[in-house]
Amino acid sequence: MSTLHDRVMGVLAGVPDPEVPVVSIVDLGMVREVRENPSVVVITPTYTGCPATDVIKSSIRVALDSADLRDVAVETTLSPPWTTDWISESGRDKLRAYGIAPPPHSSQLRAKASPACPRCNSTNTQEISRFGSTPCKALWRCLSCAEPFDHFKCH
């Protein structure tokens, strides 16, 4: 018999981020808690204004309903604030394979180290723009292989 926690996390592992579908919301560390009596799953948004948050909430609802977990409520919390440090190791690998340089640990935030190119692994890279196609990403380019790439911002 699997516990409710395991069942819910198993279902949520199949809910993709709508903007970066290669990673799930579990990979991103958005799922903070699964409680019982009453059954609640608590998620936290990545960015305050991220339009994906509403999509994600409805995707979670659909996924839980389809898995016969209709009684599990979905709640949102802001505290503690989400950090990219909660992205799992496998999530980071998936991002890299998808062409997005994963974020450094927040302890290195001020070190301003250049991310390695997800294509050729060179660290001879340059920021093009601090903001990219979604709130969570910045735009970089590799000076070795000349490819532009997204960098998941440390947050």
Partner: peptide, 8 residues
């Protein structure tokens, strides 16, 4: 992006 953060 900045506008989006501010709307949030």
């Amino acid at each position: 992006n900045v506008a989006l953060d501010l709307v949030g």
